[in-house]
Design a protein around this nucleic acid. Sequence first.
DNA 1: AAAAATACCTTGACAGGCGAGGTATCTCGT
DNA 2: ACGAGATACCTCGCCTGTCAAGGTATTTTT
Lengths: 115, 115
Amino acid sequence: MSISADTLRGHTDTIILAQLTRGDNYGYEINKNILECTQGEYGFKEATLYTAFKRLEQAGYISSYWGDDGPGARRRYYAITEAGRKRWAEARQEWENTRALLDALISIEEDQSNG
Amino acid sequence: MSISADTLRGHTDTIILAQLTRGDNYGYEINKNILECTQGEYGFKEATLYTAFKRLEQAGYISSYWGDDGPGARRRYYAITEAGRKRWAEARQEWENTRALLDALISIEEDQSNG
DNA sequence: AAAAATACCTTGACAGGCGAGGTATCTCGT
DNA sequence: ACGAGATACCTCGCCTGTCAAGGTATTTTT
């Protein structure tokens, strides 16, 4: 089973912030970590990923710097800011709330009446 | 705490299908039920709701008919089809999967190393 | 030197959510 | 009877996030 993109829409930024709480990292590697976390079931498309980085940086939730010690091409590293940590805590709460809501809304059983 | 719209995007159709497994119903009432299920925390905007009905009907997941026995204005009732029930079963599975994925991705603790 | 991998970035099209605005019917107070 | 408000449905146009496609630069492998 694969995950539709719209299903995770709205969680993109939260997922990235979560990854960055583990330490600074760069885009490609972050996405690989996400794929690992989900046993290959989900990863961002590049365009989505870099759009999200830009959005998060403009919001002040992450900052970035160039690192040049890697084996491959140049890498832009991202770090979560204080504001980002606060946002992440909020987003985790929101996810708890959303999960409860959707459980209530989607898992309705048709045990109302006749059969 | 309020729920951001994007967070539920992609679940709109599923929520409506779930409501219709309880029996035929019309738009306004469906939305009221959703508000009840969530203790007033979440309901669709009208534009979103009717867009979704149209989308679901075009997909063959629901059918509609006019009912005229109500106390207020005319009502358009919706009924879930066989295809809709199948879709709903699928969507429930997808939700289970999505929930597991997001739990794994969002609830990462920063217990990796130093402090 | 060519190919492949790593790594980053932009553009344009598309789809869903929704503010704003519109229509019709019924009920209630005066 | 009249206006206000509730019920109920519908549409238009904007905004935002996703992503296919295409592009750039560096390093390693052949």
